[in-house]
């Protein structure tokens, strides 16, 4: 084992890590926002809306992420071109971001739905009794409490998402893992580079999940 070649490769690997983190954070934000809207739709009294959201969630939870990433890579430029009427290439990063957001939204939806359902009917009644409308009751009373309760689950899902971003290698994006792999290949030391990449993934994921455990303990006391 010879780890001396890793140091010179660090700057490009940091670029890769930056891309990985960017993908993760933006996908979490988009996924939680879309997932919350989906959850509200699934709990809606309008049957059609609830069914459509339910179909969306079940569909995306039943197909592999890798399929969604490659499929969107080919589909998204077409769709955007069709919608905007221009023929501009969108690039792998955009298509991957959209794929992650839409895919993860299905998982975040189920977490948010459980969170909303954990808030008692009495709280909603109290909000309505004071004259709040549906939107205000959700935004001011139900969702703030629900998000507090589901924070550990949301973070757990986000850690999985962080690891799953490595699948972007399929469409040639140079994320952290892909950069480490290619740099390792160039110098003929793939094992050392993959071990190093694994260590970094471990530190970030394990650090985050330890923090989740700490949060869980604090919120249950």
């Amino acid at each position: 084992m010879d780890f001396s070649n890793i140091l010179p490769a660090l700057p490009s690997m940091m670029d890769g890590l930056w891309l990985t983190l960017k993908l993760t954070v933006l996908s979490i934000i988009g996924g939680v926002v879309i997932g919350t809207l989906l959850a509200l739709a699934r709990l809606s009294k309008y049957k059609f809306l609830a069914m459509a959201a339910g179909f969306y969630v079940n569909y995306f939870r039943s197909i592999p992420l890798l399929l969604v990433i490659t499929w969107f890579y080919f589909m998204v430029p077409f769709i955007i071109g069709w919608v905007t009427g221009t023929n501009r290439p969108v690039g792998a990063l955009t298509s991957c971001l959209i794929a992650f957001m839409l895919f993860e939204a299905a998982y975040f939806c189920e977490i948010v739905r459980a969170g909303i359902q954990s808030i008692s009917k009495g709280q909603i009644n109290a909000a309505y009794a004071l004259g709040l409308n549906y939107r205000q009751a959700m935004q001011l009373i139900v969702l703030p409490q629900a998000f507090r309760k589901m924070m550990p689950l949301l973070m757990q899902q986000s850690i999985i998402l962080f690891q799953d971003t490595s699948l972007v290698y399929a469409v040639g994006l140079m994320d952290f893992l892909n950069t480490a792999r290619s740099r390792g290949d160039i110098v003929g030391q793939p094992h050392e580079f993959l071990l190093f990449a694994g260590l970094i993934y471990f530190i970030i994921s394990f650090g985050a999940s330890s923090y989740v455990t700490y949060l869980k303990k604090r919120t249950t006391v």
Binding site: A126, G131, I141
Partner: peptide
């Protein structure tokens, strides 16, 4: 909402909003 805002209601389980302070509970609506 307008009608309900004119009728006060008190519940068996109080139903104060636990994520808000007492003052915020009183101010919100």
């Amino acid at each position: 909402p307008l009608l309900r805002s004119r009728i006060g209601m008190v519940f068996q389980n109080f139903e104060l909003f636990p994520h808000l302070s007492i003052t915020e509970n009183l101010m919100l609506a």
